[in-house]
Write a protein that binds this DNA or RNA. Sequence first.
DNA 1: CTGGATCCTGATGGATACTG
DNA 2: CAGTATCCATCAGGATCCAG
Lengths: 115, 115
Amino acid sequence: MSQRQPPPVEAGPYRSHCAIARTLDLLGDKWTLLVLRDALFFDVSTFAGFCQRPEQVPTNLLAARLKKLVAAGLMEKVAYQQRPTRYQYLPTAVAKELIPALLALKQFGDNYLQD
Amino acid sequence: MSQRQPPPVEAGPYRSHCAIARTLDLLGDKWTLLVLRDALFFDVSTFAGFCQRPEQVPTNLLAARLKKLVAAGLMEKVAYQQRPTRYQYLPTAVAKELIPALLALKQFGDNYLQD
DNA sequence: CTGGATCCTGATGGATACTG
DNA sequence: CAGTATCCATCAGGATCCAG
């Protein structure tokens, strides 16, 4: 319970001091949380892997979202192979703290939005 | 536990069958969840009330979001006065089911996003 | 061939002015 | 007060291009 947590992340400036508004400033668009879903729940880690998901994110938007998430400290870009260099995008410990929110959104969709 | 729940809501078409993606199709923008936050946590119900919140949503976007939320069954538009007719926007039972997700997002913001 | 960057076009966002 | 209309800036999405 009182274990040390990762440090807060800078991703502002924000619209207001409300924590919900701040979170939405960072994650509140159509793709960012989907990328995190794939990284956290489906173990997707390569650029191509994210592209191949059913929602078909455009490559330019994916590149932009990954950059933003790396800058915000939610994902880490790691080279896992040389010649040619290949990168992996891995969720950080901070990103894992979004799991409860993602599950709550999933539950809402399951229960109240028809497919 | 087994009490009857409100019926599912039509708000598609959706990008995929994933419940998270569906929820994000409906709510995943910078303003929609903020409007619901105000309605659910701060008892805001009038057009002007939403406008006056610290994030200062533009009136055209507020009108569009309220329309969408009413169409999706998450808010109800109710006349509460005649001559001139005044309307209130009230969260439905379905909207209240988003409270856990909003609290999870707030917790993330509180813990990991610096102000 | 993979991982992106670039480009172009239409859609959306945001500020503000205006109207019933 | 409750929205609509307008105008401009930015973003989304798709196609293509380029570098390693």
